[in-house]
Amino acid sequence: MTCPYLDYREASGDDSFETARAYCTVAERFVQPMRADICNDRYDLDHEAHCEIYREHEDGTESSGDDS
């Protein structure tokens, strides 16, 4: 199951791309490619366990994570 807050968009605000990219509707921004694998629960990744944005949004107990 992918994150319910994941969307694929070609543009948002000043950003636009030729191919639709992963967009977080909670953070309201395009997400990093590696984070997109978390959004999509690919490989051994799981958005419920590994995404601080999802966790914060769901239960309000998490701080926003390092996006570096």
Partner: peptide, 11 residues
């Protein structure tokens, strides 16, 4: 990669 490293807050 020679060992573990943290990513984001939960990975």
């Amino acid at each position: 990669d020679m060992g573990p490293l943290n990513r984001y807050d939960h990975l």
